[in-house]
Design a protein around this nucleic acid. Structure first.
Length: 566
RNA sequence: UGGGGAGUCGUCCAAUGGCAGGACGGUAGACUCUGGAUCUGCUUAUAGGGGUUCGAAUCCUCUCUCCCCAGCCA
């Protein structure tokens, strides 16, 4: 079988294609996505997930979901659950169960004993401060620890005592013995095992020593026979150690070749948002948002609740590409992707967000009729539905102006417009609150001959308005979201991203009036509110009241004109 | 001032010695019972200098700028 080059390629897929050609890994491709369960997954992880699982798919390989759970103090089962959920939601299959680094603790421990025996590791009894001082600086070499010369026997004895709980946290640490003068600080005898008398979410209190990421990760990859270990740029300096460790272990016969290869790519940055676990956790704990799945959050659970689809996210990840240069992706691309997807699949409905009452004065008081409305012009198979019409309606407040500027061609006094799928109407009278001058109601007349929205005499109107029948409308709540931050790079100026938080990122509209066909909509279902945007039903919905999240607005030419005029 | 990376339209990604291209954005228009969608046009880039070559974004060289590394975090 000949491997076909994938359609969308990148430097990583090129490396893989080459490895396949040379038979380096016996024509086998195996990647992994290795999150630490210490937070919720976000869009940056989505990029990595799509890359790793995408490559597995492209090259008929496999991709493991593996929890990198080597630090019990920060990890929780709740995070494990949410991560599993997010990966599945994105549409990727890792089999019935994920894998866990903690399942390899025994192997890692024995590998450490081997390293000690072979003279490649030693127990250091320096304090953390002493270790830091002796590490040197970026420009000056480090100094050997006074404990560096301990015999293998003593090291082994001490390491076992560490394992057996005979020493308190931070009293000693196992270090790889490499070169304290290396220009690469990561090679200056990095710590590989530390003492932590902490309960692990999976191994409980079996262990009181835990491997460091630096040490654990290469071994995890090797155990799983990963071929290409793909990670982000900040691990680039770590690669020499990754290779060093695996080589030592292979030499000792603890691992078999071919060894996995680490490849680094640039992490995702998205304008007007933050993508770092530390910052996201802060947004949650400090109450800037309502939780990890707040629809304003760039977490997978957040965008999901916001109404994004897995298809849109995957498409986004494909469009942003993969490279090694630092970059900042425009939020507009993400929005484009979700509009593109929802345009094809979201049923259209009419909903009035900011209602203005309209009375059709020449429409009989007790008359009602049902008008045909198309469910999705992009999808003929979606069919049509009936929408009730009556004498009193709601239209959008923004669709009327008493003194319209030249480019405004919606409703105004004396002007005729179309009510979508209904009739042509003409504004005859504007009713105002005498005190405030606020427009409270419009009196209009309709042309019965235009039923359905077409004029037999061929006369044109410049605007079509959405509406709902007041009597039939369902009252609902709508949550409109704006970016969580007011600057493209939050915190860039001040150094504190919280200073750039958008105070108006959430607008709750209540009540909004939606057409009765929405009755009984279930959480997660998505609609296009015609002319307003894409909305999805929030889990907060109760039997009596629908709650909607605005996923994204429609492209709005009129808003653009208004903005340009300011 | 050590080491490791990276510099191509406003943004993201291509071009692997042979016409710098695509997408998003922006903009102008066509069409339209969503100021939506769709379609069309336009817009703008190889960090800088020197060199090799018939020919350089690509190779060599010098310079500049940006990012990462001094956790018993990952």
């Amino acid at each position: 079988m000949t491997e076909e080059a994938p359609k969308s390629s990148d430097f990583i897929r090129e490396i893989i294609t080459e490895d396949l050609k040379t038979g380096k890994y016996d024509r086998r491709i195996h990647t992994r996505f290795p999150p630490e369960p210490n937070g919720y997954l976000h869009m940056g992880h989505a990029k990595s997930i799509c890359l790793n699982f995408g490559i597995a798919g492209d090259f008929s390989g496999k991709c493991n979901l593996r929890f990198d759970d080597t630090n019990p103090e920060k990890e929780e089962q709740e995070y494990v659950n949410s991560i599993i959920d997010s990966v599945r939601w994105l549409g990727f299959d890792f089999g019935p169960e994920p894998l866990y680094a903690s399942d390899y603790f025994d192997v890692m421990y024995h590998a450490a004993e081997y390293l000690i025996t072979a003279g490649h590791a030693y127990v250091d009894s320096q304090t953390a401060e002493e270790m830091r001082e002796n590490r040197g600086t970026l420009t000056s070499p480090g100094k050997d620890s006074p404990f560096r010369g301990r015999s293998a026997d003593e090291n082994l004895r001490l390491f076992r005592e560490m394992r057996d709980g005979r020493h308190p946290d931070a009293s000693m640490v196992l270090r790889a013995k490499i070169d304290m003068a290396s220009p690469n600080i990561n090679m200056r005898d990095p710590a590989i095992y530390r003492i932590k008398h902490a309960e692990h979410h999976r191994t409980g209190s079996i262990w009181c020593i835990y491997p460091m990421y630096t040490y654990a990760h290469p071994i995890e990859d090797a155990i799983e026979k990963i071929t290409h270990s793909i990670c982000t740029l900040e691990f680039e300096d770590q690669r020499p150690f990754y290779d060093w460790l695996l080589e030592r272990l292979a030499e000792g016969g603890l691992l078999q070749r071919p060894l996995p290869r680490q490849i680094e790519f640039a992490r995702l940055n998205l304008s007007y948002t933050v993508l770092s676990k530390r910052k996201l956790i802060q947004l949650v704990t400090e109450g800037h948002v309502r939780g990890w799945d707040d629809p304003r959050m760039p977490t997978i659970s957040g965008i999901r609740r916001r109404g994004y689809t897995p298809e849109a996210v995957r498409n986004f990840c494909e469009r942003i590409g993969v490279a090694k240069r630092d970059s900042m992706v425009d939020l507009s691309l993400l929005e484009f992707c979700i509009r593109e997807d929802l345009n094809k699949r979201a049923p259209r409905v009419m909903a009035v967000l900011r209602p203005l009452r309209m009375v059709i004065t020449n429409y009989p008081e007790d008359q009602e009729e049902e008008l045909d409305a198309i469910n999705n012009p992009e999808d003929p198979a979606a069919g049509s539905r009936k929408v009730p019409f009556s004498r009193v309606l709601y239209i959008e407040r923004d669709d009327f102006q008493e003194n319209p500027p030249k480019q405004f061609f919606r409703l105004a006094p004396g002007r005729e417009v179309r009510l979508r799928y209904a009739y042509y109407i003409t504004c005859e009278r504007v009713v105002k609150n005498e005190q405030t001058g606020e427009v409270v109601e419009l009196h209009c007349t309709y042309d019965p001959k235009t039923r359905g929205g077409d004029s037999p005499d061929g006369r044109k109107v410049k605007a079509t308005l959405h509406w709902v029948s007041a009597k039939h409308a369902l009252r609902a709540e709508a949550r409109l979201y704006d970016t969580l931050f007011i600057t493209p790079e939050p915190g860039e100026e001040s150094g504190d991203f919280r200073k750039d938080i958008n105070a108006d990122s959430l607008t709750v509209l209540d009540p909004v009036h939606v057409e009765p066909s929405l009755e009984g909509s279930v959480p997660g279902s998505t609609y296009q509110f015609e002319r307003m945007g894409y909305f999805c039903v929030d889990p907060d919905t109760t039997r009596g009241k629908l709650a909607f999240n605005r996923t994204v607005t429609l492209k709005d030419t009129w808003a653009k004109i208004q903005k340009a005029q300011k």
